[in-house]
C-alpha cells in the first residue's frame, strides 16, 4: 500500500531528524576539530590535525587524560565487583529490610550530581580525604555501583532458579558454585557493566570538578579550558572523549548481545 509506504518513510524521516538533533552539536564539534581556522566559521578553513597535536602537547591535557584513564579503570573495576556482590545478595537472600537495601543501592544516580559532588566534597574534606586521585575514584565508585548492579541483577533474573542448587547437588560448595556457575552465567553482564561504568566515569565532570583538587580529569580540564580561552583544542579533546565513551557504551551493548541467540533457542 502506498499509504503504508508513506507512513514508513515519514517515520524514518522523523527518526533521522531526532538523531540529527541529538548528534548535531557533537558532530559540529567533531567537524571543527579538524578545521585549520582558529575560530569556528563557515566556510571551513581546510583539513588539519594541528589542534589534536596541540591538545596532546599541552601537559595539563596529557595529565588530565592519564588521570581520567586511571580513574575510569579503577572505579569501573571496583564498582563492578561491588555491584555484582550487591546484585547477588539480592538474588540469593531474603532478609529484613531488603527493599530499603535495594532502594539505597540504586539511589546515587537519582541525586543531582551537583548536590552529590558538593556533599562528597564536604564529607571528604571533613575526614581529610579530598583532593587526591583516589578521592575521585572513591566518588565515581559510589556513582557507578547502581549501573553495574542493575545490569548484573537483570542477568541473574534470567537464570534458572534451580541452576545454583543443581551445582550444589553435584558436589560444588557455595564458593565453587559462584566460580563455576554464577560467574560464567553472569559474565556477559559483568563485562557490560565494566564497559558501561567505565564510560560513566570517563564522562563524569561534575563530581570530579568538586573533589579532584589539583588532580583534574579530562572533562574537568575541558571545563577549565573553556572558562579561560576559546581554543579549537577543546573540540579535539571533546571529540576524543566522545569517541572513547561511545566505544565503551557500544562494547557494553555488544557484551550483552553475544549470548542472546543461544538463550532464545533454549
Amino acid at each position: 500500500m502506498i499509504l503504508d509506504r508513506t507512513i514508513t518513510l515519514a517515520l524514518r524521516f522523523y527518526v533521522a531528524l531526532v538523531l540529527l538533533l541529538v548528534f548535531a552539536p557533537i558532530l559540529t564539534s567533531f567537524v571543527y576539530s579538524f578545521d585549520a581556522n582558529r575560530y569556528a566559521a563557515i566556510p571551513w578553513g581546510g583539513f588539519s590535525t594541528k589542534w589534536y597535536a596541540a591538545a596532546f602537547a599541552d601537559p595539563d591535557v596529557a595529565k588530565g587524560f592519564r588521570n581520567t584513564v586511571i580513574v575510569a579503570l579503577s572505579s569501573s573495576t571496583i564498582a563492578t565487583v561491588i555491584g555484582f556482590a550487591t546484585a547477588y545478595t539480592d538474588y540469593r537472600y531474603r532478609f529484613f529490610g531488603k527493599n530499603l537495601y535495594l532502594a539505597l543501592a540504586l539511589l546515587p544516580p537519582t541525586i543531582p550530581v551537583i548536590i552529590l559532588g558538593l556533599a562528597m566534597l564536604v564529607f571528604l574534606a571533613q575526614v581529610g580525604l579530598s583532593g587526591e586521585l583516589y578521592t575521585v575514584v572513591f566518588c565515581h565508585v559510589v556513582y557507578c555501583i547502581p549501573f553495574a548492579m542493575a545490569l548484573i541483577r537483570l542477568r541473574l533474573s534470567q537464570m534458572d532458579p534451580d541452576l545454583e542448587a543443581a551445582a550444589w547437588n553435584l558436589g560444588a560448595g557455595q564458593w565453587r558454585t559462584l566460580r563455576e556457575v554464577i560467574l560464567p552465567f553472569t559474565f556477559p553482564a559483568i563485562l557490560s557493566a565494566l564497559f558501561l561504568t567505565m564510560a560513566v566515569s570517563f564522562d563524569e565532570y561534575a563530581i570530579a570538578w568538586f573533589v579532584s583538587g589539583f588532580n583534574e580529569t579530562l572533562p574537568v580540564r575541558i571545563l577549565v579550558l573553556l572558562q579561560r580561552e576559546v581554543s579549537p583544542k577543546v573540540n579535539a579533546i571533546g571529540s576524543i572523549v566522545f569517541m572513547i565513551s561511545m566505544t565503551l557504551v557500544m562494547l557494553a551493548q555488544i557484551a550483552l548481545m553475544v549470548r542472546k541467540p543461544r538463550r532464545q533457542a533454549g
Binding site: P161, L170, P184
Partner: peptide
C-alpha cells in the same frame, strides 16, 4: 544424592 530436575537445570554456558 544427585537429582534430575524438573527444569533439568543444565548449565547453559
Amino acid at each position: 544424592t544427585p537429582m534430575v530436575w524438573q527444569s533439568l537445570a543444565l548449565f547453559p554456558f
